[in-house]
């Protein structure tokens, strides 16, 4: 396997403008779903076959009564050893050699969805209820193989999303986590050595999202 690409998601720089969430829909031609306000800005409520990128928004108070509002631009981690592929015996899920992108082919309709989902530590794969096909982020495979960065990364104003060669992104992520640690002792680059989409967080990952650091 080549070194491939990686995406840094530096949540400390995210303002939840949700440009990435919509840019993903725009580029990939994904339709909207009917939603309702469920007492949170985050919408749609969850990833789906037509929502591959979702800014999760979690608020609360920490020990000192200080309020936080954490933003977590959730998407497939494009794992180095993808758990979802454990059930893929006939090429339903592919891992691209050059880029490292993990791709769901149309054949995923034949997979056991629950088993695939359980194989993913990050709760990513979603099934189209009609066609039974599975969907998730493609790392904008079409763009990155044509010298364009992923649509979500391009839309990000603050540098919360950065795309690049894996080595460099891992280094940036780890350095950023180390820098944040000076102010926020709990800061971390989540599973940086196992995933291609590396999240840097300031606080306990579960304060962002239940599966932020994996199941």
């Amino acid at each position: 396997m080549s070194k491939g690409f990686s995406i840094l998601v530096d949540t400390s720089k995210c303002t939840a403008c949700r440009g990435c969430q919509i840019a993903c829909k725009q580029w990939n031609g994904l339709p909207a779903t009917q939603t309702k306000n469920w007492g949170n800005y985050q919408n749609p409520q969850d990833l789906s076959a037509v929502t591959w990128k979702l800014v999760r928004m979690a608020d609360g108070t920490n020990g000192h009564g200080k309020v936080y509002w954490n933003f977590f631009s959730d998407q497939c981690r494009h794992c180095l050893s993808p758990g979802c592929m454990a059930v893929s015996e006939n090429g339903e899920i592919k891992q691209d050699e050059k880029t490292g992108a993990v791709l769901f082919t149309p054949k995923t309709k034949d997979l056991d969805y629950q088993a695939t989902l359980e194989g993913c530590p990050y709760n990513i794969p979603r099934q189209d209820p009609k066609t039974k096909r599975l969907f998730k982020c493609t790392m904008c495979f079409d763009r990155i193989t044509n010298n364009e960065i992923p649509a979500c990364v391009k839309s990000c104003p603050t540098g919360a999303l950065v795309f690049g060669e894996r080595d460099k992104i891992v280094e940036i992520a780890k350095n950023r986590a180390a820098e944040l640690k000076k102010t926020y002792p709990t800061a971390a680059a989540l599973n940086a050595d196992d995933v291609r989409v590396i999240y840097v967080v300031k606080d306990d990952p579960t304060k962002y999202y239940e599966f932020a650091a994996g199941k």
């Binding site: 339709p31 779903t33 789906s48 076959a49 037509v50 149309p106 189209d128 495979f141």
Partner: peptide, 30 residues
């Protein structure tokens, strides 16, 4: 990688669960 071009076209272009939202008066088709 052996994903065919045709496969990829399908993969990128036809996600559409396309929830009908006639109740909103919107055409949300893929």
């Amino acid at each position: 990688m052996d994903l065919t071009r045709r496969e990829f076209i399908l993969l990128s272009g036809a996600a559409g669960a396309g929830v009908a939202l006639s109740s909103l008066g919107l055409d949300l088709g893929p």
